[in-house]
Design a protein around this nucleic acid. Structure first.
Lengths: 132, 132
DNA sequence: GGCAAGGTTTACGTTAAGGTAAACCTAAAC
DNA sequence: GTTTAGGTTTACCTTAACGTAAACCTTGCC
């Protein structure tokens, strides 16, 4: 075991590790999703383990289609309640809403795809043409 | 049977019927997704059955997450090939791509939801907090 | 000492899919 | 004849999530 100085990590390296840009990290700070980090004497932002975990979670949720706005809402709940127990229901609710939407869209698009395969010769009638 | 003058239909009524705004219809024309329609003497746009079908199809695809850009691509293929047979493969391909993306997202988000239910008490570690 | 790498802040640019407003026209209604 | 409803074009505004550029600073390196 080593206290292998992985942390604190400067913004540039963190960005590189997560395959995002420093702009993105600063942007999340700008809109209040990320906390104001420690700075080096030169003013460079450096991040600790906590903040890195938080950022990773943000990226994960984003990848799943949760908007930064929704995350902000969750962060607000946490900030005012200081309890994960209060955050969970809302997070689950948001996830369920997304799941429902995605699920519906998936079945409808699959249905359309099936219809197209069956009625291949009738594409024209679906309106992709101006000539009957 | 009546030639129940449903067509040609002026832009305002069409918009109302489809629950969109006239701006949207004009926008689709602007970007070349809808053809330039007939006009009344006053200059008002009027649409025939063909164009209405086309617009409905556009709205359907849009609802399913197909971008206007992708539709434009399909329209281009049709315009140059003049054959639905040429359009179909690309349309199916686009749909498949979307299905794959949606499907992946759906399973990942469902997985996260399940994880949250199981590790409810560990939300903090997921980074939604700044305090270990 | 000088420059290149990598920061900093401030601020304007971008994309998608329209919204909204201004200035004008015309047809129907009162 | 003038208000009202519904068009027309032109053109700037909006939101999300950053990109990009300008002007400046600090640190390591030759």
């Amino acid at each position: 075991m080593n206290s292998n100085s992985k942390y604190p990590i400067p913004i540039g390296e963190l960005a590189k590790q997560l395959s995002i840009t420093t702009r993105t990290i600063r942007y999340y700070e700008e809109i209040g999703l990320m906390p104001e980090p420690q700075r080096m004497d030169s003013g460079v932002r450096v991040y600790g383990r906590e903040e890195v975990l938080r950022l990773k979670f943000i990226l994960k949720l984003k990848e799943l289609g949760i908007t930064l706005h929704e995350m902000h809402e969750l962060a607000e709940i946490y900030r005012s309640e200081q309890s994960p127990e209060k955050v969970m229901p809302r997070l689950v609710q948001i996830l369920d809403t997304h799941i429902a939407q995605i699920d519906g869209k998936l079945s409808r698009i699959a249905q359309l795809r099936a219809d197209l395969a069956t009625y291949r010769h009738r594409v024209a009638e679906l309106g992709l043409t101006e000539n009957p």
